[in-house]
């Protein structure tokens, strides 16, 4: 009981101490997460939603965000569109942080030729222009959002590994890591617990959020192109933006466009806020 109370007070304290941009962004991120989590519970049939008698209605009480050219509710489609990137983004972010963090820690900790050859392979992946590589993959393999998420995860491993490696290299010079080595701790324990968990936690969380926002970006971009992502009539923020080609009214494409920008901005600010907070705590 008392434990819950303490953590509650702590949350309020952190909330009060953080900046306005962090507060706003965490609200948006929370809302998107909520949408993503309740999404599987919402049943939505895009075909049944079509009603040509209510085309291009302006936002009103019954349709908060108006309707599009086929009379479908923009708000509902926006909500349902979260599904397209939410779980793929989380999975890609999680694995990118896990693998990238692990590889980076190994590179930085071991050094030598093992570290250098891993670093060389990672640099190779980093040279590939991401969008071009994704299109190439989608030409050769049957495209699906899960494949896209997997490739995004792969493409982000090098940059995460580099960040972690630099951190580990700077830590490696510190005496207490040397002391752990001298105490005879198992290297795996030092890498996974003392380095990755204790030191790189916030950094990896930030990277996870960054990859998530990239999957959101790439999913909307590919769905906008219309051949690889989510296909009409199923909603995605990307193919909703693509309505700009055929829509008479502005809101069917402008609202998802704003949603994309606001969500990515909130994710980035949230990640930065977490990293900054962690630095402050350490100091």
């Amino acid at each position: 009981m008392s434990k819950i109370k303490v953590s509650k007070i702590k949350v309020i304290k952190i909330w009060r101490a953080s900046s306005l941009s962090f507060q706003l962004s965490s609200l948006v991120v929370f809302a998107v997460f909520l949408c993503g989590l309740v999404n599987p519970l919402i049943s939505y049939d895009p075909v049944l939603d079509v009603d040509l008698s209510r085309r291009d209605l302006a936002p009103s009480l019954s349709f908060v965000m108006g309707t599009d050219g086929q009379g479908r509710s923009v708000g509902l489609r926006l909500l349902k569109g979260v599904e397209a990137f939410f779980f793929p983004g989380l999975i890609a972010g999680f694995f990118a942080a896990l693998i990238g963090g692990g590889l980076g820690a190994i590179c930085g900790y071991l050094g030598g030729w093992v570290g250098r050859s891993i670093a060389a392979i990672l640099e190779l992946i980093d040279t590939l222009p991401r969008m071009v590589f994704l299109v190439l993959i989608c030409t050769i393999y049957p495209p699906s959002i899960l494949l896209i998420a997997m490739i995004s995860c792969l493409l982000f491993i090098p940059s995460i590994a580099t960040v972690v490696r630099r951190k580990v290299e700077s830590l490696g010079a510190e005496d207490y890591i040397l002391a752990h080595v001298a105490h005879g701790f198992h290297p795996l324990k030092i890498i996974s617990y003392h380095i990755l968990w204790l030191q790189c936690r916030a950094l990896l969380t930030r990277q996870l959020i960054f990859v998530f926002s990239y999957v959101l970006f790439i999913e909307t971009a590919l769905s906008y192109l219309g051949d690889y992502g989510v296909q009409e009539p199923y909603p995605s923020w990307g193919n909703m933006v693509a309505q700009s080609r055929i829509s008479v009214a502005a809101w069917p494409w402008a609202i998802p466009a704003v949603a994309i920008i606001v969500t990515i901005a909130a994710l980035l600010a949230f990640g930065d806020g977490i990293a900054r907070r962690d630095e402050e705590v350490k100091r």
Partner: peptide, 27 residues
């Protein structure tokens, strides 16, 4: 690399005869 990635999709939007447009049409 990010700028070159962005060119692909922006060329498509403005239908510029660049290699990004070519890439997407070919794909």
């Amino acid at each position: 690399p990010l700028v070159l990635s962005a060119v692909v999709i922006v060329e498509y939007i403005f239908t510029l005869d660049g290699s990004g447009y070519l890439l997407l049409q070919a794909a």
